[in-house]
């Protein structure tokens, strides 16, 4: 029971990371109609910048700031240099150009930092653990990650539903042409949305950096799961990204934690282990296929 609760929290923490990535991706997707495979590269940039600065200066908070700055700058550079030319193209060109960006980002990171993973420690404030249930201590840092994720979710909700920029974002996700026809500076809006998405991806990377190993290719692993979240949640819907992110994060963590054990009761050990790991990796994709069969546009699609 306690193990279950702990895994649920782990799932929540993973779900929050997925949400941070998916929120930016779904906005970019919904408003500009661009498939950005390189979104995971921005996550990697955030994680690397934060870890490197944290290792050099010894300050997690300095790392946090530089990680956010680095990913936002990289995002704006990508938008101005590459994305801007892709808005009018079809999805195929977008997939390829951003695939090329992944190669470029990954190899540049190898050139700068080498292939060895970077390791950082959690900040002193959060180094301990809290006993949230009797007999269940849980690392404070992971709780902090969850809190940050939920706070960002609230902030995004307010930004999108209560401000003028948010109104433009919503309008853009519903009907791009109409927004342009009404004389909105769409170029500026695009750059701003892309920067925001990059910032959120960077934040996810920074938050994850003390927990996961910061290495080249870390973005590629999580970006596929993020796409699943975006598609299940419905392209362009931040609410969908939130719901799908949390659900998928928990679902995936649960499968990974318990499926191999369950399988071991019906078949021999090593094979059950391998099959359990394989099937739990398939889980989220299976879920996406099922959701799309029932609702081809995802759960909360912005465009009707």
């Amino acid at each position: 029971m306690i193990l279950l609760f702990e895994q649920l929290l782990n799932g929540l923490q993973y779900g929050v990371t997925l949400f941070l990535l998916a929120a930016g991706l779904t906005l970019i997707f919904g408003i500009m109609g661009v498939i950005n495979l390189a979104h995971g590269a921005l996550y990697m940039v955030g994680a690397f910048a934060a870890s490197w600065v944290a290792i050099q200066t010894g300050s997690f908070w300095g790392g946090l700031l530089s990680g956010l700055a680095a990913s936002a700058i990289a995002g704006v550079a990508v938008e101005l240099g590459v994305m801007r030319r892709l808005y009018a193209r079809d999805h195929l060109d977008q997939v390829l150009a951003t695939f090329a960006l992944i190669l470029i980002f990954n190899q540049s990171t190898v050139l700068i930092f080498g292939r060895q993973p970077l390791f950082t420690s959690v900040p002193d404030v959060f180094s301990g653990s809290v006993e949230i249930l009797p007999g269940l201590p849980y690392p404070t840092y992971r709780l902090f990650v969850i809190a940050v994720g939920l706070a960002v979710a609230l902030g995004l909700y307010l930004l999108i539903n209560k401000t003028r920029v948010g109104m433009l974002v919503r309008a853009g996700a519903t009907n791009r042409q109409m927004v342009r026809a009404l004389g909105v500076n769409i170029q500026g809006l695009y750059t701003a949305v892309f920067a925001l998405g990059a910032l959120l991806a960077g934040l996810a990377g920074v938050m994850a950096s003390p927990i996961v190993s910061v290495q080249v290719g870390m973005g590629d692993e999580i970006i596929l799961a993020t796409f699943v979240v975006v598609v299940i949640g419905g392209v362009g819907s931040v609410k969908g990204a939130f719901v799908a992110g949390i659900v998928l994060g928990m679902f995936d963590t649960m499968l990974r934690a318990f499926l191999p054990g369950l399988l071991q009761q019906v078949m021999p050990g090593p094979e059950a282990q391998a099959l359990g790991v394989g099937v739990s990796s398939m889980g989220i994709y299976l879920m996406m296929a099922l959701v799309l069969l029932v609702r081809p546009r995802g759960l909360f699609a912005a465009r009707g």
Partner: peptide
């Protein structure tokens, strides 16, 4: 169709990928 088609074909390919990885 569209984006969803791209992603669902990717999803199925991933399922096959993990299926074969788990076949000891």
């Amino acid at each position: 169709g569209g984006v969803q088609f791209i992603m669902i074909t990717l999803a199925f390919a991933q399922m096959f990928f993990f299926l074969f990885i788990s076949l000891k």
